[in-house]
Nucleic acid binder design. Sequence first.
RNA 1: GGCUCCAUGGUCAAGCGGUUAAGACGUCGCCCUCUCAAGGCGAAAUCAGGGGUUCGAUUCCCCUUGGAGCUGCCA
Length: 483
Amino acid sequence: MAEIRTRFAPSPTGYLHLGGLRTALYAYLFAKKNGGKFILRIEDTDQEREVPGAVDLIYHSMREAGLTYDEGPDVGGDFGPYIQTQRRDLYLPYAMQLIETGAAYPCFCTKEELQQRRDAATARGEQFKYDKHCLHLSKEETKKRMESGESYVIRQNVPLTGTASFEDALFGHVEVPCDTLDDNVLIKADGLPTYNFANVVDDHLMGITHVMRGTEYISSTPKYNLLYEALGWPTPTYIHLPVVMKDATRKLSKRYGDPSFEDLLAQGYVKEAVINFIALLGWCPKEEREFYTLPELVEAFDLDGLSKSPSIFNMDKLVWFNSEYIKKMPFEDYLTMVTPWFDKALAGKQMDYRRLAELMHTRTEVFDRVPDMVRFLAELPEYEVDIYTHKKMKTDPAISLQALQLARPALEKLDNFGEEPLKECLMALAAENGMKNGQMMWPVRIAISGQLNTPGGATEIAYLLGKEETLCRIDAGIAKLEA
RNA sequence: GGCUCCAUGGUCAAGCGGUUAAGACGUCGCCCUCUCAAGGCGAAAUCAGGGGUUCGAUUCCCCUUGGAGCUGCCA
């Protein structure tokens, strides 16, 4: 059996979006699972839409994701070049061959003319379809106009009757009536091929055996098969992948401000978590399991786990995956990763980062949420007195004031400001004064943190703050409660 | 509008003619607890509707409905 070759063929129009990443991931997994090759090809035939730097962004994202390709623009290979504009001269001969056999024809209609006719058709409430006007030009006239340097395109000559079809490994047989198909442009006036043509030619020339791409291509694939047939080439196996949605009706897209892969990494998502989550979005493994490393995904991947319907990108679940990955991370790794996020809120403060990291490790869902969670350590936030009142802790402003007034001198006398001594001190104080633990701990924690929820209890916070700052904040609390 | 595709809880989804219709996220309880998390236990929640086929449909077929994609000298 021939070696399996799949490819990921993005256009350099910006960052790598999550739908694209998933398509790339599946193509990678399928190739690797079957001992085949995974290829990266840059489809930059639309010069107008190209965004400078986008190609490098794609390389970068692919590396970050761990999707190493066996062949590609920056790694080479036997089927290069892997950038379509660098292959520009390759396409025309095939187009000419198509013209010879009648499967294509030159067209001299200008964009403007076409647009007018399209608009007119729309105004009449009709669907515009190219009328094969230039197909009926005489050979002589065509030849003369081409040689005179007149601008022209080459169009696919789709039959007016019959049907075109293809077999999809996921969707099965897909067939469309030819009369609903338009004569697409194969070679543009600038000499570059359109996606419709470049794709067919390159997939064939590069020996791609399995074409994996989004379902947006499903309706034009029958037309591509017509091209393969006309060229006498074997068709690849098609596997169209459903799109990733933002919600029930909208596709995930940068236009709506949805994050790209790089955005997620910048926000503090762990790349392994993103890959893991993406993999399970539209594909389900055979076994009852949800945590997979990339190599494990390769091992587990199979086509019949693929879903046919679009799936909604569930941010909540990504967050959950991310927090799970963070929790499983060795502590030292976590400390390294979280340190810059601590710095954002605590820069310049003397703080036991290691202890803070211990407290934060199971509380971190996404790294960019860390600064807001620890900022109170740098500066006591403004807070309302009513947060001293907590029903379950049985506290109110009066009890809180009493607790703080008791705690203040006791803590001042405490030489060892470690968590254990702090705890013993405050607990003992509560017991001596007939208070419940919560009636002592809650007010102290509120006074020294100024907020309802904190990553750690009163003693941990007091330790992190240190004696001086703790006493200072308790004083502020007392003043606030007395006011 | 035309063509194509899709349809199990709020979301991701298992299921591939006979099941108490898995599991996960989220939600809601309870436990633990110096707050919040984490952890443990538990609960609610799904086969879009209508026709067939069949002894029997979530599962196969048709229609309706809903959604998506395509309908560019974009990919």
